[in-house]
C-alpha cells in the first residue's frame, strides 16, 4: 500500500476561501471602527474604505454563495447592479456631509 496519494492532497474549496476572505474583511471593518476614539470615528477616508469592503463582500456573496458566478445574461450582474445603487447613494451622502 502506497504511503502517499496525490489525489488526496489538501485543497481548500473555493467557497471556503471566500468564507475566510469574508471573515477577514469583516474583522478589518471592526478594527477600523474600534481603532479611533468613540467620539471621532474612523473619518471619511476609512469610512469609504469600509463601504468598499462591504460592497466587495456582498459581491462575493452573490457570486460564490448565491451561485451567480458563471451565469450568462442579465442575472449574472443583478446583485452587482443592486449594490451600485445604495453604494453610490451612501457614498454621495457621506462625501457631501464631510
Amino acid at each position: 500500500m502506497s504511503s502517499s496519494n496525490p489525489s488526496r492532497s489538501f485543497v481548500i474549496r473555493p467557497c471556503t476561501q471566500v468564507y475566510l476572505a469574508l471573515m477577514g474583511l469583516t474583522a478589518t471593518t471592526y478594527l477600523i471602527g474600534t481603532a479611533a476614539a468613540p467620539e471621532q470615528g474612523p473619518g471619511l477616508g476609512l469610512s469609504l474604505l469600509v463601504l468598499g469592503f462591504a460592497l466587495l463582500k456582498s459581491h462575493l456573496i452573490g457570486d460564490y454563495f448565491m451561485g451567480l458566478r458563471g451565469l450568462h445574461g442579465p442575472w449574472r450582474w443583478v446583485i452587482l447592479l443592486w449594490l451600485l445603487i445604495p453604494g453610490g447613494l451612501i457614498l454621495t451622502a457621506f462625501v457631501l456631509s464631510a
Binding site: 477600523i32 471602527g33 474612523p42 469600509v50 463601504l51 453604494g87
Partner: peptide
Amino acid sequence: WHMVDLVWLILFPLVYVMR
C-alpha cells in the same frame, strides 16, 4: 438566507462604523 446575510453586510458598516 444569503440575501439576509448580504443586507447585513451593508447594514453593519453603515450603521455601526461609518461616520
